[in-house]
Design a binder for these strands. Structure first.
Length: 202
DNA sequence: TGCACGATGAAC
DNA sequence: TTCATCGTGCAC
């Protein structure tokens, strides 16, 4: 039996203000390049064991679909990639090099196979340690594979528009660590906030 | 059932 | 530049 909720307006210590700021499904159900660029400056929120951790997204990479040789979905529909081929607005979290976690957000319609990798955060609340890099970001936010396929419209794991939005310039660069992807390695599919000190590799 | 290989990070 | 470390995908 769930404890009764206090009346709206009387709740104290809210994990994050107004649910209206949470990005809707329609935000993710769009062109991946657009979603990637617009994720910059948004807040990633994870509530775990009563602790709300928040980071401002400052660097991302777009993985466009099965035709993109750097994308995991280029392997086709497998046990690992089925989340990428699932509905938009879900987290795709996997273990890399046997020791680090990477988090993506699934974009576009179900079956498309695209996602955006979160590469760096600017600490906003309750983040310990560095957040400059996909593995460090997940460690600081306490994100692991138990959150794979998690719906980002949940109340304890989501992305939101901050109350005060700062203007920023977007820099485009090739993605990191995908040299095996031939010409896809050269495309400028990494985006980051210009001059932000928390970008992993300016 | 075995094995090559990472969308990394840290040490040297 | 090297290496830790293990899940995944595919070869056999």
């Amino acid at each position: 039996m769930a404890p009764p909720k206090p009346p709206v307006g009387l709740r104290g210590n809210r994990p994050y203000p107004p649910a209206v700021r949470k990005l809707p499904r329609s935000f993710y159900d769009r062109d991946t390049l657009t979603v990637a660029r617009e994720l910059l400056g948004k807040h990633l929120v994870h509530v775990r064991a009563g602790v709300t951790r928040i980071g401002r997204i400052v660097e991302v990479e777009a993985y466009l679909g099965p035709h993109d040789l750097a994308a995991h979905s280029s392997k086709g529909l497998t046990e690992r990639t089925k989340v990428m081929f699932g509905p938009p607005g879900h987290a795709y979290v996997y273990l890399i090099y046997g020791m680090h976690h990477c988090m993506n957000v699934v974009t576009e319609r179900a079956g498309h196979g695209a996602a955006v990798l979160l590469r760096a955060l600017e600490p906003v609340k309750n983040l310990e340690g560095r957040t400059q890099g996909p593995g460090l970001l997940c460690r600081a936010m306490q994100i692991d594979r138990s959150l794979n396929a998690y719906d980002l419209l949940s109340d304890d794991f989501f992305i939101a528009t901050p109350s005060k939005v700062e203007r920023h310039m977007v820099v485009k660069r090739p993605r990191i660590g995908v040299d095996y992807a031939r010409h896809w390695a050269k495309r400028h599919l990494r985006f980051y906030i210009q001059d932000n000190p928390f970008v992993s590799r300016p």
